[in-house]
Design a binder for these strands. Structure first.
Lengths: 200, 200
DNA sequence: CCAAGGTGTCAACGGCTTGAACAGCCCTGC
DNA sequence: GCAGGGCTGTTCAAGCCGTTGACACCTTGG
């Protein structure tokens, strides 16, 4: 109810996710247990279930991915703000930022390597077969940003461009091409052509 | 009991003290009311009393001063670490750091100006007539540090030097001389002579 | 003199954490 | 094959703690 209570809830979620993040990057998602998460977070096991409900492990995985995505989105916004004048430059900077950070992001590394080795692809699914959480957040933010920064692009073209840049970027995270910078430039060209169809 | 619970208590105290700090620097200690503190801290008035007990206002004032002192002590330690080789240089750096920061520290400024104007010297008393909380913390920390860094100074000389440097520094905070750097050098000389009585 | 506002306290309420216990499941090792 | 152990998901009672509203008391200013 009060702001302090909300702060406590936020703190609790944060502590639990921090603990889960650490355990996932150390030992992989498959080896994650609820009890160690609670121990490292400094609360009881039941508190984790109270906060994340039944199937706490899945909810933690989703929250982990969402938080990481939100983290990326903050960085992307900074990149876009620095290249607001040109859509293509902004796209290059934003995608380049994501691809560069993705290769040394502990969580993504852990998920990718684990999935390549065995069948531990539960978290990877949020980037492949069940990417709605990430896609929705990213497209919503980017669409709002694009509508504000490049109003000359009509709604349909904007929607097409945003969906394309999100899907291509995620694709390159999961299956990286040789050079992140080159990939970013290519994605930016594609996005720009979709946004400005007349500008042959 | 659990680490999370402790974190919640710490957070609560922190929020309350932040709110009080803001109100004191804005409107002075005399105008401080418990209700606004609770409102800004984001909790109920009763919670403030639960946390700080009867005479909550006094307890908050003490906690405010102690936290500020602790903040200074952290900075002092960094200065000492950077000049561990020479007691005089370390003393100059430490005292200089304190005197420089003191003149633009919002809390100290607010307390000093309010006390010079009216009779609102309740907080100032922690630096003048009732300085035990600050003195005790500072002397304890400095004595331990000195025993570790300059073991060649005997216990009696060390105790004398630590007490002197603390008292003189606080005196210069309340009643600043012309130049903080010059004051620091003078205090350092005095302290060094007390610590090494033979080294005429 | 009294109205207003701040203080310190209390009891009831409710949310939330905790610890304990239990059934179901999976895996390991005998 | 099977017994044992570890983990999961769930429930329950107990207790802590913040919140709320009310109250008596004091100080202050019109």
């Amino acid at each position: 109810m009060t702001r302090f209570r909300q702060a406590v809830r936020t703190l609790l979620r944060s502590e639990i996710l921090d603990a889960a993040y650490q355990l996932v990057t150390d030992e992989g998602w498959a080896g994650l247990r609820v009890a160690p998460v609670a121990r490292i977070a400094g609360c009881s096991r039941q508190t984790v279930y109270n906060e994340f409900g039944t199937n706490a492990k899945d909810a933690i995985g989703l929250a982990l991915v969402e938080r990481e995505a939100e983290h990326f989105l903050l960085g992307i916004q900074a990149q876009l703000d620095a290249h607001r004048a040109s859509l293509e430059e902004a796209a290059t900077a934003g995608v380049g930022f994501v691809l560069r950070r993705a290769v040394d992001n502990p969580l993504i590394r852990s998920v990718l390597t684990a999935a390549r080795g065995g069948q531990d692809d539960e978290l990877l699914a949020y980037l492949t077969t069940r990417p709605e959480p990430v896609f929705d957040t990213a497209t919503t933010m980017l669409d709002a940003y694009a509508a504000d920064a490049w109003p000359e692009v009509d709604a349909v073209s904007r929607s097409l461009a945003v969906e394309t840049i999100v899907r291509l970027t995620v694709s390159h995270i999961v299956q990286p091409a040789a050079d992140p910078e080159e990939s970013a430039r290519r994605i930016a060209v594609i996005t720009t052509r979709i946004a400005y169809p007349g500008k042959a």
